[in-house]
Nucleic acid binder design. Structure first.
Lengths: 160, 160
DNA sequence: GAAATAATATAGCCAATGCTATTTTTCAAT
DNA sequence: ATTGAAAAATAGCATTGGCTATATTATTTC
């Protein structure tokens, strides 16, 4: 039996095919593991760009967690090669970190703008985008972008 | 200073207001904690409805995790009042469980349909919806629904 | 009804992410 | 230069959600 056979709905039951569903759940679990890393890197990039420095206390305050929680996560980010850290010195993004941050920021921006464009309030869009961005695949992001371009050009053309 | 003052962007920096951002992150962390419960309850409802029973092995197989992992989570679901469980007997949803399942299923359905309606493939929609559904607020769901109704009526009216 | 099989329960491990309390280090100010 | 405050590091703990290995209980089959 081929690996990609029987994707979609299973005729024998009303349920989604088990192999397909298990893949969704696995993917989601995977995403959940990388969400925090992405949040941190994105936030650090913002802080660096804006204020020139990203201190643990700032990150902690922004995320709403305690400083030791941040310290622990920064160790992980360092180990994964996204940041460079010197004891009692500031935090810097590596090339990989900057790259990831850029990706996240773009994705975040697309999701948030998209939500706004379909009539969600700015505040809710911000909150929901924060959670949803990590689960938007490239394909979905493309669809969001297409939609944004469409509605933008419609508005320019003066349509309702 | 009022609690809801200064929501949105902070004029002093290019960054989002810290209070607003921290709220987003808190909300997201909160959602993440309830995601698994919702996944389980939704899946159990599906299994019960379809096959008449929801066994640990089925749940484990569907989620792609080991059976003891499911056993542990079921204890939690029991403690939180969503399911009833008798040793070596099947699993049943309580009223609260059925209610939650219904809510989740509806939400899931809306998100997945919505993604399809903007041109995301069925398979990707399934995967992304699995992750995104838990982060869609009522307001966003309403926007999705509005959009679905619009495009449906457009199609019926024969528009491109 | 006894044996084999299937399902569930339990024990014990690990990693991730949160916390508080405390120590260490740096920096700023006098 | 010393001190005091701020920041970061560290220790130690709890919870959640994974896992494997194993024991127990039901069920099925002969």
């Amino acid at each position: 039996m081929s690996q990609h056979e029987n994707i979609g709905h299973d005729a024998e039951t009303g349920l989604i095919d088990a192999n397909a569903q298990v893949e969704s759940f696995r993917q989601t679990r995977n995403n959940r593991r990388t969400e925090l890393v992405e949040d941190y890197v994105e936030l650090i990039a913002d802080l660096l760009e804006d204020g020139g420095e990203a201190r643990q206390v700032d990150i902690a305050q922004r995320l709403g967690v305690a400083q030791p929680t941040v310290a622990k996560m920064l160790k992980r980010l360092g180990a994964e090669g996204y940041i460079q850290q010197r004891r009692y010195r500031g935090i810097f993004l590596t090339d990989a970190g900057r790259q990831l941050a850029e990706l996240c920021r773009e994705r975040h921006q697309i999701v948030e703008s998209f939500l706004c464009s379909i009539g969600v309030s700015a505040e809710t869009a911000r909150i929901d985008a924060e959670g949803m961005e990590h689960h938007a695949s490239p394909e979905t992001l493309e669809a969001f972008k297409r939609f944004l371009i469409q509605t933008t050009s419609s508005r320019i053309a003066g349509e309702a």
